[in-house]
């Protein structure tokens, strides 16, 4: 490899990468045919290039970004801090099959998937009723109340839904629009995208975070408002590092009239 100049190295290296113009590549090829040292060096570059590419064979860590499993299901204290924000690096697998208007079809989400209609029915029953209101012994997470209150929604109802096993929190806006949040058990160590759908006036948003599955349900709510609430709640539950004030500011900025 003696006698080669730095410019030769650059040309050879670029040749190995297929980065030369046709003319330059032809020129290098011509030299390679006549100069064994140059050919050996090109082989060396190819060997190094292949060896470095193999470094990507190591699997990426499949560990949570943040591990903060809640100690008590409904003993949440500070905003977001009591909510699991386990975002498994492979969470994409869970959600790649999600489509608008559905909860997805992956086995991991099957539990939530089969619950949707019954939970929506629970919402409709509550929305059509005068009560009951807050159940004893079932306290909404503080972060949940805080966020929704910031958007003009007051917690007025909480109840256990026996089948499927879920907690139902009902919120009411000034114009009597009703929003339900259902929290149920979900496969552990999962996290993923927020799925928002609107179908014939029925609005739903769902996501899974840690060991909890969340489903927001409303009917006829302003779309921007619903999306804002859903997005903020999703972020609050997931991102422990998101600044609470920023989230509240976002909610306030997007506050819309409750039309329901």
């Amino acid at each position: 490899m003696t006698g080669l100049r730095a410019s030769d190295d650059e040309m050879l290296s670029a040749y190995a990468d297929g980065e030369l113009s046709a003319d330059d590549a032809a020129w290098v090829a011509n030299r390679l045919a006549r100069e064994p040292d140059l050919a050996r060096k090109l082989a060396e570059f190819h060997r190094i290039k292949a060896a470095l590419a193999r470094l990507a064979d190591d699997p990426a860590p499949d560990v949570p970004i943040i591990s903060a499993t809640p100690k008590r299901r409904f003993g949440y204290g500070a905003v977001a801090a009591a909510v699991a924000a386990v975002a498994v690096l492979g969470a994409g697998l869970l959600y790649t099959s999600h489509t608008a208007g559905s909860f997805g079809t992956k086995p991991e989400t099957a539990t939530v998937l089969t619950q949707k209609e019954r939970l929506v029915a629970s919402h409709d029953v509550w929305a059509a009723s005068e009560g009951p209101y807050l159940s004893e012994g079932l306290q909404a997470p503080a972060w949940m109340e805080t966020l929704l209150r910031a958007n003009g929604l007051e917690l007025v109802h909480s109840a256990a839904v026996p089948a499927p096993n879920a907690e139902h929190f009902g919120f009411v806006g000034k114009n009597d629009c009703r929003l339900s949040l259902f929290v149920s058990a979900a496969p552990a160590d999962t996290a993923g995208t927020l799925l928002i759908s609107s179908d014939g006036g029925l609005q739903t948003a769902s996501w899974i975070d840690g060991s909890d599955g969340f489903l927001l349900v409303a009917r006829g709510m302003d779309a921007l408002r619903f999306n804002t609430v859903a997005t903020s709640m999703h972020l609050a539950a997931r991102d422990l590092r998101r600044d609470g004030d920023e989230m509240l500011a976002t909610l306030a900025a997007a506050r819309q009239t409750c039309n329901a």
Binding site: D58, A60, G90, G92, L93, T96, S97, G192
Partner: peptide, 24 residues
């Protein structure tokens, strides 16, 4: 927002991305 498309794209580059992190 990080949706299904992005998750799918991420799955395709996870190893390379981590290898890049290890290189840095």
């Amino acid at each position: 927002m990080f949706g299904a498309d992005q998750h799918s794209n991420l799955d395709g580059i996870r190893r390379k991305l981590f290898a890049y992190a290890r290189a840095l």
